[in-house]
Design a protein around this nucleic acid. Structure first.
Lengths: 346, 346
DNA sequence: ATCCTCCGTGTAATCGATTCCACAAGGAGG
DNA sequence: CCTCCTTGTGGAATCGATTACACGGAGGAT
């Protein structure tokens, strides 16, 4: 592969001049500029990003470590992050932690070894050593979705308390009183917050959240199934189950169906995180939707701000309730809406 | 951040010796080895992968350019690719082409600029200039899922002809005769092959595939909707629509529902690519499942073989039909099966 | 005409690793 | 006791870029 030296030779100039042309440095004669671009063209030369990074100490690359790629919520997040990063002239390398702290650490160290300019993390746990180290070492960093209290890093997330309140109001209005939740891991902020928000909302209606109605999940489908089975085995099963993420809701649906029961007639179901597929499930699932695209965009902007020396602030965006049929009859009969999967095509 | 020089100073040795210890070179005294590891420990030193790559001319990184991350099929492919690559000591950088040749080219050049060791591509089109250039330039390369005829690169893919035959047999057995297809872009191999396989299978039953029953889609939900609307407007609409990927099937479902019609009573639906959500849609969708994990694994192995100087061969794995309820009554009434989303949890 | 600027260019140092080659010390063999 | 090998180590070149500094020449001011 041709190097800058080859270009210099081909153009009959020094590597310094070639480099200047390549980087749009002002003090280069028109003649030299032309000769260099011609030589580049002839040789099909492309600058070696590795060498450039070594010299300039910046890779123009962002690392994104997410908890689970197979979760549509995170897939969409990753997509919007990449989009915004590209617009800002950065590439992104995605690491999938699969909800495992050890894998998360692996990716963090790998990314740091490659000297990425900044790190976007949605931590799987309360803080693995590798991650804490990275934060302390001064690598520009931003948390998305989940975060770790006590670590001084901007957080870009969505606040679901109002939406959860709306959800409880909706359920209460439908006559439901025994409401249960499938919680996420207590080590994650989203795991804890959603339970807290739910409990608080229930309290506003004079409802309790007994321990038996709090199932411990891990944000994966399997746990949703297991917890739901436990609920159904109760002497007095809940009337509605609220899953703290979409995968656990899926598992819950499975469990209900495996018993030959039906949603929402026998038991209602609601989920945190709305995804395109919830429109098409049987029945369509009532969910709390986060503004994922905006979250990704804001996270990248905050991180790039940090990288480029600007402050880089935390952002909290509200989530909102999307009522469908999985908890009982909706208020109004609307025509089916088109799938949100659709792109910009008219 | 500490460099190898700092380690050398701390250990009271030369950088050469430090490097040898780091790389497990045999001719290093036990004493030196200990002093170096101690120094590394004290300094929290991590080798700079950028510098290393520049010197050794290898990044131990694979590039993966896929057509659409939001498509669960590709998400799963990406996941299995990363998994296998990690097992083999490689990282992977994912580029999302979003079915756009220009974006695909952008990612290919970016990846090449970073001097990745090899490229895994599922081409969006018949071959964008950047990709063809990469193939010609001798970068180790392997096609996954889709490929480009005439380019001498191993292909790892799945063969759906048998499964499509099974599908048509299933539909024929259910009494359906007017069968339509929503095709993928003609520029992609999968776009063409699936139509061809479908036509051939129909022929085996003395059935035709009239032009009016071939809708041109682009593997995105929007086109599935549009094409299906066209089918429904026909004087004699098809009895079953076969979507060449899962996203278009989703769009098709939307369109049917938007008319107030029902699947499978008013019109049947089948899809290429099985995904976890098809179990939970209303109704569950009959689909052709590819062995995605195996595909990802095989692709990485072929690529790494190429990179490390071994031949690196093409692989074709069979797809299989998964019958559900979207085309009419299934043969047997089975208890609902658990969701395939489940991980290794028992 | 002289001096000072400014412009365009080239030389060489540098980033952080790897690795070839030289070399010193020590042991074996003659 | 001398030579030869082996072993462990260090010096320095190298990968491909960027950039500080030096320098020659053109042009303007005096």
């Amino acid at each position: 592969m041709a190097s800058i030296k080859d270009v210099a030779a081909e153009a009959g100039l020094s590597v310094a001049t070639v480099s200047r042309v390549l980087n749009g440095h002002p003090s280069v004669s028109e003649d030299a500029r032309r000769r260099v671009t011609d030589a580049v063209e002839r040789l099909g030369y492309r600058p070696n990003a590795v060498a450039r990074s070594l010299r300039t100490d910046q890779t123009r690359t962002l690392g994104l470590v997410i908890s689970d790629v197979m979760n549509p919520y995170f897939t969409e997040l990753a997509r919007s992050v990449e989009e915004e990063a590209r617009a800002l002239g950065y590439s992104v390398i995605i690491g999938n932690a699969d909800e495992r702290p050890d894998l998360q650490d692996h990716h963090v160290t790998t990314l740091l070894d490659r000297r990425i300019d900044g790190l976007l993390v949605s931590p799987t746990d309360g803080g693995s050593p590798g991650m804490l180290g990275a934060a302390r070492a001064g690598t520009p960093m931003v948390f998305v979705d989940r975060w770790i209290p006590g670590v001084d890093v901007p957080v870009v997330r969505s606040d679901g308390t109002a939406a959860v309140r709306d959800l409880v109001a909706h359920l209460y209005g439908l006559g439901h009183r025994r409401l249960a939740i499938i919680a996420g891991p207590a080590a994650t902020t989203t795991g804890r917050e959603r339970v807290d928000a739910f409990r608080a909302a229930l309290a506003a209606y004079g409802l309790e959240l007994p321990d038996a109605y709090i199932g411990q999940g891990d944000f994966q489908a399997g746990s949703g199934r297991r917890v739901t089975e436990g609920f159904l085995d109760l002497a007095e099963p809940p009337e509605v189950v609220f899953a703290a993420d979409n995968l656990m809701a899926l598992g819950s649906l499975d469990a209900v169906r495996a018993r030959g029961l039906r949603v929402p007639d026998d038991i209602g179901l609601a989920a945190f995180d709305d995804i395109p597929w919830f429109v098409h499930t049987d029945p369509p699932v009532t969910a709390i939707a986060q503004p994922v695209r905006d979250l990704g965009r804001a996270a990248v902007r905050a991180l790039v701000d940090r990288i480029e020396g600007r402050p880089g602030e935390s952002v909290t965006l509200p989530a909102r309730l999307v009522v469908r049929r999985s908890c009982g009859e909706p208020e109004t009969e609307r025509p089916p809406s088109p799938s949100p999967v659709r792109r910009s095509t008219p």
